[in-house]
Design a binder for these strands. Structure first.
Length: 648
RNA sequence: GCCAAUGUAGCUCAGUAGGUCAGAGCAGCUGAUUUGUAAUCAGCUGGUCGGGGGUUCGAAUCCCUCCAUUGGCUCCA
């Protein structure tokens, strides 16, 4: 007999060799139906794998990620089986479960798939799923596995196996398909009830641009048809919040082929929104002791040779522009820091002056690959809410902490609750990707980890994601369809001060080197506004909304009164419009609701007589009538309260 | 840049075995209506069907190429 410990710490005895499925059955038949995988001492196992020793277990159903993972991983194998059936000779790369669904990378030889083929794959998957093929786990030696896949001619699997450590390798078989796989899998294919093969993409083998591009097929599956329907509806809903769609509808920004791809044009309403965000941050930065600076959009090539950016990115940037007579070379600035270093250098600095915090909404230009451009989130010209803090080494921690405070303050003000923090460190295996001394890297990495912990942020550490000059702390937010984007960033840099020979005179009357912190709480105005649009679905908070209220006269008879209301509200700094079209009130309400204007102010005979307005709040409907001055007070209060509450 | 797809009026979309196929709704303009909380009615103006080549008696429709966009991959100071 063995002792099985359940998550609630209860212990039950079972005979050795019992499986997860049998344990679930012993609890309830329903559980046995719902369970998808089991954790055994923290390791995720198949439900059919015998447990031979005492263990702590946890059963996974659809409602946890481990359960979904096993489900989707099995689905990937099911899809592979379908592909093998439909396209004999297909070679398989990898086929993992992902955050929503799964994919499989395959080499179809000369055959190229198009979207019509996805339905065939889907049909085949349904057909195979209904055959209830069990997933069988099998241990095999490395050499045996190599031989098996070599005979099959599956060079990708062979390569994967060669890279594995010697010892036993696990295979999973179901139906006619055998795959190299760690598992775990479902007992059989029958729980896979709803299937959607979603899309096709090219994907380089092992993520290496120089290697063969395989066909990646994305899919998602569910244990119930209704869950698939819900998922598809959710996708549709998310599309409605897409910033590219709303940006057009709400007239915030546009693109023009004639201006160039990836170069956004901010329309008046978008510019107004952005300006309010900028002013908000400027005020915060003023409170935190930043000094605004302004630098030009181009800089001498020498500047970037000095900074090291030219050597690193010169080839992959917009190419230099030349002066017609002297032939001097200038680069569109890809970042603001070299300019700011020169500002620091413009006069001798004392230790008493530090930290020096130079802030600029600096527009930069980067050559992004054409396939990577995406709405406002990935563009070729954008404005960073940039600042560089030059400080003494002993001030790093405090300064870094203050920047975290600013970022958190901004996220709180804008109600960004679901963000992820990521600490990016260098990859010690690829030292040539980075510049700067080991010692400085270690110091900086340690500082970031410490501060992040002290601030109570659960920073996920990612090796190899650091910038080439230093480690960083990023704040990531998801967009409407779940893609992660980096917004705020804080980066420690020992390198540029070195390269620009920045100095300050210390208390000891000796020259010392300052440390730089790069930081951008929004990241870029473009990306931030994009994410803000998707988070709010275009219903911006009142203090940011380009237009806060609109006066809707019932008919032309009340035009004069409507205009007097408009005037008095604008005099109170309430951003107010008027809809004086010759339309019925229902139409005006509809149109302006769709424009996401927070307050609709209806005026007709009754209001004119009483000197009032009828207030209709977005999403809430009729609030009754009030005097325009009372409305103005209410708006001012609402705006101030939001900003004040956050400060407390 | 690579793989796959898409590209018809300002917007959303119909129209492809090649032959009155250049259309609809919304927006815009004009007029009627003077309206009470999510679409009043009528008329009109909009498009070298992404650009350029080609096949054909004839191309929005077929082929080639370029451009842009979309979903991924790679990249991301």
């Amino acid at each position: 007999m063995i002792q099985i410990t359940f998550p609630d710490q209860r212990i039950k005895e079972f005979s050795a060799g019992i499986t997860g499925l049998e344990i679930a059955q012993s609890i309830s038949p329903q559980l046995a139906k719902d369970v998808l995988a089991i954790s055994v001492n923290g390791e995720i196992w198949d439900l059919t794998r015998p447990i031979t020793a005492d263990a702590a277990i946890r059963l996974h159903k659809w409602d946890d990620t481990e359960g979904k993972h096993a489900f989707w991983h099995s689905s990937a194998h099911l899809m592979a089986e379908a592909l093998q059936n439909l396209y004999p000779g297909v070679k398989f790369g990898i086929g993992p479960a992902i955050e929503s669904g799964f994919y499989y990378d395959v080499d179809l030889g000369d055959k190229s798939l198009s979207e019509n083929d996805l339905l065939d794959i889907e049909k085949k998957m349904y057909e195979l799923a209904s055959m209830k093929s069990p997933f069988n786990r099998e241990d095999i030696s490395k050499s045996g596995a190599l031989e098996l896949f070599q005979t099959k001619g599956d060079e990708y699997k062979t390569e994967l196996i060669s890279d594995l450590a010697d010892g036993t390798i696990t295979l999973y078989k179901h139906g006619s398909f055998t795959d190299l796989c760690r598992g775990p899998h479902l007992p059989d294919t029958s729980p896979i009830k709803a299937i959607k093969v979603l899309s096709l993409a090219g994907a380089y083998w092992r993520g290496d641009e120089k290697r063969k591009q395989l066909t990646r097929i994305y899919g998602i599956t569910f244990p119930k048809k209704s869950l698939l329907d819900e998922y598809l509806i959710l996708l549709e809903e998310a599309k409605k919040r897409d910033h590219r769609k709303l940006g057009k509808e709400l007239e915030l920004f546009t693109f023009s082929q004639r201006v160039g791809q990836g170069l956004p044009l901010w329309l008046p309403r978008g510019a107004m929104l952005r300006e309010r965000l900028e002013n908000f941050l400027k005020k915060v930065q003023k409170d935190y002791g930043y000094d605004p600076v302004i630098t030009p959009h181009i800089g001498s090539k020498e500047l970037y040779v000095t900074s090291g950016h030219y050597a690193k990115y010169g080839k992959d940037s917009f190419q230099p522009i030349h002066t017609p007579v002297e032939g001097e070379e200038f680069l569109l600035k890809p970042m603001n820091c070299p300019h700011h270093c020169e500002i620091y250098r413009s006069k001798p600095r004392s230790y008493k002056d530090l930290p020096v915090r130079l802030a600029e909404f600096g527009t930069v230009y980067r050559y992004e690959q054409s396939g990577e451009l995406h709405g406002l989130t990935r563009v070729r010209g954008f404005t960073q809410d940039d600042a560089h803090i030059f400080c003494r080494p002993d001030q790093i921690k405090e300064e870094f902490a203050k920047v975290i405070d600013i970022v958190l303050y901004i996220f709180k003000t804008l109600d960004f609750k679901e963000f992820i923090t990521q600490i990016s460190l260098r990859d010690p295996n690829t030292p040539d990707k980075y510049i700067g001394s080991d010692e400085n890297w270690e110091k900086a990495e340690k500082a970031i980890i410490e501060i992040t912990n002290e601030k109570g942020l659960e920073g996920q550490i990612v090796i190899g994601e650091a910038a080439f000059y230093g480690p960083k702390l990023d704040f990531m937010v998801k967009d409407a369809i779940g893609r992660k984007w980096q917004l705020g960033t804080i980066q420690v840099d020992y390198n540029l001060p070195e390269r620009f020979e920045l100095e300050y005179i210390g208390q000891d009357n000796q020259r010392h080197r300052p440390v730089m912190i790069h930081r951008a709480p929004f990241g870029s105005m473009e990306r931030f506004v994009a994410v803000l649009i998707e988070h709010t679905a275009g219903k911006f908070p009142l203090w940011l909304a380009p237009d806060q209220a609109i006066v809707l006269p019932i008919s032309e008879k009340y035009q004069n009164y409507a205009e007097s209301v408009l005037k008095s509200l604008n005099n109170c700094d309430i951003r107010t419009l008027i809809d004086d079209r010759n339309e019925k009130i229902g139409k005006k309400i509809r149109d302006n609701e769709l424009r996401r204007i927070p307050y609709l102010l209806i005026v007709g005979e009754k209001e004119e007589m009483e000197g009032t307005i009828s207030v209709r709040k977005q999403g809430q409907g009729d609030m009754g009538s009030m005097k325009p001055e009372d409305f103005a007070t209410m708006i001012r209060k609402e705006t101030e309260e939001v900003l004040k509450r956050i400060e407390d």
